[in-house]
Nucleic acid binder design. Structure first.
Length: 312
DNA sequence: CGGTTTTGACCCGCGC
DNA sequence: GCGCGGGTCAAAACCG
């Protein structure tokens, strides 16, 4: 499937002082130009193949997602609520040619069959070595249970949205536990998530959301995992969101950025968050690309090709 | 010390 | 009514 090609590594360590526009050099530049065109063509073919693959995967996921939700209670709810069930497929950018891949942290909504988000289902591609059930989607979740279900040996983890100004769900001292009856009054505010690994593909996390957030994102946690670095471990213990008025952007490479929401407010935070993420993504891509010796080689080849074209 | 995670126990709905 | 299985609770452990 992967197109085969010869050794494309080029020795561009040429001393400019020894550079003479003689026949040999022109011939070399012509060869490099041809090679560059061949690489470009190769890259286009690769992208086309990858597009086809992702379309194929999406088709398969659509078929797999048509199974009813496991619990009989859920099954009934799903039947009655079928029209408002969303099915999303989160697909990581698993381009092996890049030195960075975007993992579950930045999964995207791939399909939206209905505008009502009461029940949403995501498939999130994860690293094979990553066994955690954490899905970083910008919100902060508190795990409140884990269960091994009958039809899947992988445990299912249950999370609740742990922070919202209007959300009364809080864990207090042992004398002031939140009872189940408290939830019934605020059921429309309640946001529940459960996560389970797919039986067919253990690297895929099946993430189901129930309810709607009545607040903005509390935290944008984008993790770009390069070939050298590791995925961020789940946040344990004390949350980096030290107060309800702060939000933290973490990354494996960049230092932690904490935004003060006291003055700016949530709306401004949303835009600041987006621009921070965009800025971070650009920086991360640039860092990853410049760190890759193959990229610098290809860049030099492309530039020399352009120079050659201009000269002809 | 306060918040989060873990995990066994309990609750409750459903099918038989 | 009983058993099963999924969902949730809550005490203890853990962590920064």
């Amino acid at each position: 499937m992967e197109p085969t090609c010869g050794d494309t590594s080029l020795d561009l360590n040429v001393d400019p002082s020894t550079m003479h526009m003689d026949g040999a050099l022109v011939e070399e530049l012509r060869r490099l130009s041809c090679e560059n065109k061949r690489l470009t063509h190769l890259c286009e073919n690769y992208m086309a193949l990858q597009k086809q693959l992702s379309q194929l995967i999406n088709t398969n996921f659509d078929q797999q997602l048509d199974y009813p939700i496991e619990s009989s209670r859920k099954r009934k709810a799903a039947e009655s609520d079928q029209c408002c069930t969303n099915k999303f497929v989160g697909v990581s950018n698993n381009n092996a040619e890049c030195s960075s891949i975007i993992t579950e942290d930045s999964f995207k909504k791939y399909k939206d069959f209905n505008s009502s988000p009461k029940v949403s289902k995501f498939l999130v591609k994860t690293e094979a070595s990553n066994n955690s059930l954490y899905v970083m989607d910008g919100y902060q979740w508190r795990k409140y249970g884990q269960k091994v279900t009958r039809d899947n040996p992988s445990p299912r983890a249950y999370f609740r949205c742990s922070f919202a100004p209007s959300c009364p769900v809080k864990k207090k001292s042992s004398q002031n536990k939140i009872k189940l009856s408290n939830f019934s009054n605020v059921s429309h505010h309640r946001m529940i998530i459960w996560v389970q690994r797919s039986l067919e593909d253990p690297t895929i996390l099946v993430t189901t959301y129930e309810g709607e957030h009545n607040h903005g994102h509390q935290r944008a946690e984008i993790s770009l995992v390069s070939n050298q670095s590791e995925a961020l471990p789940p946040l344990k213990g004390s949350s980096p969101v030290s107060s309800p008025n702060t939000a933290t952007i973490r990354s494996a490479v960049c230092p932690t950025v904490t935004l003060d929401l006291v003055k700016s407010g949530l709306v401004e935070f949303e835009s600041a968050q987006k621009s921070s993420i965009q800025q971070f993504l650009v920086q991360q891509m640039a860092t990853s690309l410049t760190r890759d010796p193959n990229f610098t080689t290809e860049l030099a080849t492309a530039i020399s090709g352009k120079i050659l074209e201009a000269q002809w």
